[in-house]
Nucleic acid binder design. Sequence first.
DNA 1: GTCTATACGAAGATAGAC
DNA 2: GTCTATCTTCGTATAGAC
Lengths: 194, 194
Amino acid sequence: MIRSAAVLFRERGVYGTSLSDVVAHSEAPRGSIYHWFPGGKAQLAEEATRYAGEFIAAGIAAALEQDDPVAAVRAFAALWREILRDSDFSAGCPIVSATLEGDRTPAARDAAGAAFARWQELLADAFRSRGVTPARAESLSTLVVAAVEGAIVLSRAQRSSAPLERVAGELESIVADAAFHAPARTSAAESIIR
Amino acid sequence: MIRSAAVLFRERGVYGTSLSDVVAHSEAPRGSIYHWFPGGKAQLAEEATRYAGEFIAAGIAAALEQDDPVAAVRAFAALWREILRDSDFSAGCPIVSATLEGDRTPAARDAAGAAFARWQELLADAFRSRGVTPARAESLSTLVVAAVEGAIVLSRAQRSSAPLERVAGELESIVADAAFHAPARTSAAESIIR
DNA sequence: GTCTATACGAAGATAGAC
DNA sequence: GTCTATCTTCGTATAGAC
């Protein structure tokens, strides 16, 4: 049910998703919403946001296990590219939805803030362990998260994965430079520079 | 009325804003909504999105007149920093709202896509005229737009302008490097590198 | 052009039976 | 725990008077 909510929030946002939608999508018993979520929709939104945030954080952590920050950035972008393609550019990031509609559900917005912070810290850790200074690791990891999230929005608006591809290419080369690491350079931005 | 809609969309999104809200905020005659907007809310959303997109594009164009891309990026970020601060982090970018809720209002989503494309092209033009190759100007300008928009979301979620500040600093130094231009370097990222 | 009144539907939440 | 039925509120949109 929480998973269904997260999936639906990706496409339609929090307001755009009714509790009936969630019940229908999850095939859960209709009468049990308020049994499991006494706080109603606000509680469901908060838990779905937290769930989605942790899910993606786990993906980032897994991608970082190869100890290659550039590959992790590439994997992060690739994850979203797939989601965009599979949904015909109608699905985005549920955490962004929770943020934008967060004035009415502060708990969900706070969960969104925590999720972004977690992703960014995971990346910052990886950068630091590659010799990047702490302050720079902080700003660079924030750039990566912000740019990818923004690129998803641009791609949805233009119904094209081109913005995400371009941003991913730029990020890969920026991270490669910062982390004093030169992996196989296949990104568009890199080939242009040469 | 269009202006009011854009202002409200920034804070509450398209779904979160009712036509009554728009009437109340704009102090326009209640009975005339469907006279001026026969297409109803969808039409209002589309025109508000277009209006906001052009408004911001004009700001970018003005900032670019000094022929200093770095300063333009700084001005772009500063614009949003003010909006965030003045609204206590409850206002964001109306174009993003139109994008996320665009499945129900395709016209507004298309206007959002056009707005992003316009901003990006303005920046790309400036980069090209500073000697950046066309392809790289394209990806770099996309990065700037995406990163700033994403940073606005992060700042709203965390109710802090720190993410926007960090991203702006990174972008300024990236753009400075790419445009073969070394203005007074005051950004955090640059001072860390030294 | 602008008004009031209202139709119509949707959504969140609750009540009480089983 | 889960069901059905219902209450209430709210939002879009329309109708028809002025």
